[in-house]
Write a protein that binds this DNA or RNA. Structure first.
Lengths: 291, 291
DNA sequence: CAAAATGTCTGACTTAGGTCAGGTATCATG
DNA sequence: CATGATACCTGACCTAAGTCAGACATTTTG
């Protein structure tokens, strides 16, 4: 019986091709070819620069131009020259365009809801989808610096605390831990970095400093769906790069032996175990790295 | 932060659309449009009837005819009239066609291997993909009667025993259990049914009889990826239908309280708990249903 | 056995999507 | 301020894919 990995992969492909095809063609219900609908959606999602849309959708400049013209004639899009550079153009939805865009959004959301409702445990299904999407999108993960008070950061931190609570035998209570003040993770003291996969945050790390040549790495978290894809390393690299930029040359961090994969990561990245340097009740392992 | 189910679903869609598109276009490397490649593959996978191919690929009869003609001109396919009905035609690969088909298969397998190698735990990735594929392919699951000695049946039984071994505190040893003889699950005594999703077996059930108006349901198994999609019910229905056909009017089964979802299923389907009717060491629950 | 139905094929046509070679306006630079 | 680079646009062209009406041979049905 051929239930080998390859057959399973190919079954997945066929199932998904059929379904995604149906999803795509549901966009056809609004009497507009798929190309035009995709451009409308890209603009609706905030890609206003014509070149950005073209790039995102992988379109030839001629084709892009024609699609844009079509949407303009329909009265859904208006283009204006870019204020800094009149060669470039920026496209924006008109009121009618925004309505049409929202109709597409509704369609898409409806399909998503129907699909998720097909399973008795949508959370398990979503976790599986996250995992697949993370592996597929592995090359398209970007790391950005954000405010540690912003919603992306808060989301990541919430997930991080939840994970610790699950993995520490004693649970985890933020208020008992040495919680770095958000100001310490903002320039010029430090920074806060979030990894985005197609717009969704899937990992974070904080660089917490007080001025001077020393800082701490805090709150390294990678979404379960994205583990094993080298994201921890990339986040640590982003934090180190920022530290160098800020003139920091000694980094420290604390962690717990209940998180063996974190320990392995630090060791692989050239961190050295040192003696306890704080009285936080949760960590039992302490590391340092000279840049 | 929008990390709601809908966003996650849509992220999955985008990731998969991009990847599956790349996969499709990898078929273009052999200098043949996708449509022709799809027809070649359908024939290679054993769909010889022209109507069957057309139906499977959802093609117009005119288009199908032209694609077939193209493949014939390339010397990859030969068509002959159907022996029973000269209006119908059957298509078969020539030697050159088979070589070309195998080249496509190799391409497809290579891509699958590369993808799976991207993850440190391919088994977790595959489990996630199986789950998604099962939900997507929910409507396309077919139940067929097979020999209980065939490879599909043996595969399912292997998975079934593995599952019991994991779920029973004492483990599970087939040789200690009352294993129904395969002959009892073949007409006219009984039957063995396997659920297929796109060719892969994802569930089974046996109807084990010795002649006479009574039979037992044995070996009900549903792949973890396909649970919660109503497959258990469909398999039980297939077994019951076969029982009625064979003139059986009393069905029995035994199960274990370590499998609560099985118990719930039986109760929902109108089975009644009865007293122990055998001395098998594993079951502790016994059910009966009058048809 | 004539009429209706079926399965495939052919020709004429349409649409979506895409490529390519210029063309035009604008910007950056020596 | 001339020159080349850049960003977008236009026209001409092409292919893949699909639709539709009718043709033809064969089979089924009244």
């Amino acid at each position: 019986m051929s239930v080998d990995p390859i057959s399973r992969f190919r079954r997945f492909n066929r199932a998904v091709t059929a379904e995604v095809g149906a999803l795509d063609s549901s966009f056809l219900g609004r009497g507009r070819p798929l190309g035009a609908a995709r451009v409308l959606n890209a603009i609706g999602h905030g890609r206003s620069d014509v070149a950005a849309v073209r790039d995102y959708l992988g379109l030839d400049s001629g084709l892009m131009s024609r699609l844009l013209r079509g949407l303009e004639e329909e009265g859904l899009v208006a283009t204006t020259p870019h204020p800094d550079d009149a060669r470039r153009r920026i496209a924006q939805l008109t009121d009618a365009g925004r309505q049409e865009f929202e109709a597409y959004e509704r369609l898409s959301n409806e399909r998503a809801e129907i699909f998720l409702a097909r399973h008795p445990r949508p959370e398990a299904l979503l976790a599986a989808m996250d995992l697949v999407a993370s592996v597929f999108g592995r090359e398209r993960v970007s790391i950005g610096e954000v405010s540690p008070r912003g919603e992306e950061a808060l989301y990541c931190l919430g997930e991080y605390y939840g994970e610790l609570a699950r993995r520490f035998e004693t649970g985890f209570d933020v208020s008992l831990s040495r919680d770095p003040h958000a100001d310490s993770m903002v320039r010029p003291h430090g920074g806060f970095f979030v990894a985005f996969s197609d717009g969704l945050p899937i990992g974070c790390v904080g660089l917490s400093g007080k001025g001077g040549g020393m800082a701490e790495i805090k709150r390294l978290w990678v979404s379960p769906a994205a583990r094993g894809l080298g994201l921890g390393r990339r986040l640590m690299q982003a934090a180190e790069d920022a530290a160098r930029e800020l003139g920091i040359n000694i980094l420290r961090l604390d962690t717990n032996s209940a998180l063996p994969e974190a320990r392995r990561l630090y060791e692989r990245l050239g961190w050295r175990e040192i003696a306890r340097f704080n009285d936080d009740p949760y960590p039992d392992l302490f590391f340092e790295k000279h840049l």
